[in-house]
Simulated assay, not measured.
Amino acid sequence: MKIWTIANQKGGVGKTTTTVTLGGLLAQAGYRVLLIDTDPHASLSYYFGIEAEGQTLSVYDIFTNKEPVTADKVLDCLSPTKVDGLFVLPATMALATLDRQMGNAPGMGLMLKKALSCVTDEFDYVLLDCPPVLGVLMVNALAACHKVIVPVQTEFLALKGLDRMMHTLTMMSRSLNKQFDTIVVPTMFDKRTRAAIQAQAKLMSDYSEEVWQGMIPVDTHFRDASLQQLPASVLYPKTRGVAAYRLLLKVLELDPVNE
């Protein structure tokens, strides 16, 4: 089972779109895929029509259940989607209270890693959609993963946010005693604007070793797909945005992963 965390400490850069689209492409290729929503805003959950506050069980229960986590307990929290082989572990707004409730509890940063170790045989891929803040949820997502995907919008304010995220990865690498296999993914690129072209050039200059050589273009089909609660790869497989994610997926799959 391969575990990828999609993270950035700036909101609105395409984390959920990246999670959904890559997950859709993998499921369409025949893999069993689990998408985990660790953001209290629950954008990933709502994308698939899952009413976060109406869920009996969610990722919140993975953190707060006092009994030892088991495969059955994890699987009971999942919601199916309209795509065969694609499942969601939804979020709830109660996640926003975790740092205050349990942030300093021993072993709290490894809860998701332990839970996922129980379902290794159930899924081929797990993709974690992170909140845009450094806290117990992002720490868990980073501790659990084999690869970190950092979407960054091609505009200068987003590049400032990327600096903060990369600093966080350096800090967490020391804390967790692990090296992160990181790929930075330029998103929302509009070749018609000078600002996007200049931002892309600076991104390549400042982070040449981590940045994917391609880019995800602006594509309104992503928004249209969210209205129908399906990945764009299912509804609009030949669009330029989906084609770009398909190229990204090929690069991700070429990289060695410690399973």
Rank of each mutant, 00 (worst) to 15 (best):
residue 136 V to F: 03
residue 133 V to H: 02
residue 155 E to T: 01
residue 138 M to E: 08
residue 156 F to I: 11
residue 137 L to W: 08
residue 138 M to I: 13
residue 145 C to P: 03
residue 153 Q to L: 01
residue 132 P to N: 05
residue 128 L to R: 09
residue 119 V to I: 14
residue 137 L to V: 04
residue 127 L to P: 04
residue 133 V to W: 02
residue 141 A to S: 15
residue 142 L to D: 07
residue 121 D to S: 13
residue 114 K to W: 07
residue 132 P to A: 09
residue 155 E to W: 08
residue 117 S to M: 09
residue 150 V to G: 00
residue 117 S to W: 01
residue 149 I to Q: 01
residue 118 C to E: 15
residue 156 F to C: 03
residue 132 P to Y: 04
residue 127 L to K: 08
residue 153 Q to I: 01
residue 152 V to T: 12
residue 142 L to W: 10
residue 117 S to Y: 04
residue 148 V to G: 02
residue 111 M to N: 05
residue 150 V to T: 02
residue 135 G to V: 11
residue 145 C to D: 03
residue 147 K to A: 11
residue 126 V to T: 12
residue 137 L to N: 06
residue 134 L to N: 14
residue 155 E to L: 11
residue 121 D to T: 12
residue 156 F to R: 00
residue 125 Y to Q: 07
residue 152 V to D: 00
residue 158 A to T: 04
residue 150 V to N: 00
residue 120 T to G: 05
residue 127 L to I: 10
residue 144 A to K: 12
residue 149 I to Y: 03
residue 156 F to M: 10
residue 146 H to T: 07
residue 131 P to L: 07
residue 123 F to M: 08
residue 115 A to E: 09
residue 158 A to E: 04
residue 113 K to T: 03
residue 129 D to F: 07
residue 129 D to V: 09
residue 119 V to P: 00
residue 131 P to S: 12
residue 155 E to S: 10
residue 127 L to N: 08
residue 128 L to P: 02
residue 140 N to F: 05
residue 150 V to H: 02
residue 149 I to V: 15
residue 137 L to A: 12
residue 137 L to M: 15
residue 112 L to K: 04
residue 144 A to R: 11
residue 125 Y to F: 15
residue 132 P to E: 06
residue 120 T to Y: 04
residue 126 V to H: 05
residue 111 M to Y: 06
residue 138 M to N: 12
residue 139 V to E: 15
residue 126 V to W: 03
residue 130 C to A: 14
residue 160 K to M: 12
residue 112 L to E: 06
residue 115 A to Y: 09
residue 146 H to N: 13
residue 111 M to V: 15
residue 130 C to E: 12
residue 154 T to D: 04
residue 145 C to E: 06
residue 130 C to H: 10
residue 118 C to H: 07
residue 134 L to M: 15
residue 121 D to P: 00
residue 155 E to Q: 13
residue 131 P to C: 15
residue 142 L to S: 11
residue 117 S to R: 08
residue 132 P to M: 06
residue 111 M to T: 14
residue 156 F to H: 00
residue 140 N to A: 13
residue 148 V to D: 01
residue 120 T to A: 15
residue 123 F to I: 14
residue 134 L to K: 14
residue 149 I to L: 15
residue 139 V to M: 15
residue 153 Q to W: 00
residue 157 L to C: 07
residue 118 C to K: 09
residue 128 L to C: 12
residue 115 A to Q: 08
residue 136 V to I: 15
residue 130 C to W: 13
residue 138 M to V: 15
residue 131 P to K: 07
residue 115 A to G: 09
residue 149 I to M: 13
residue 128 L to Q: 08
residue 120 T to Q: 10
residue 137 L to P: 03
residue 139 V to D: 14
residue 151 P to R: 05
residue 136 V to D: 05
residue 142 L to G: 09
residue 116 L to H: 06
residue 112 L to N: 04
residue 126 V to K: 12
residue 153 Q to A: 04
residue 157 L to H: 05
residue 158 A to F: 09
residue 123 F to E: 03
residue 136 V to M: 12
residue 139 V to T: 14
residue 158 A to D: 04
residue 144 A to F: 11
residue 113 K to G: 00
residue 137 L to T: 11
residue 115 A to P: 13
residue 150 V to E: 00
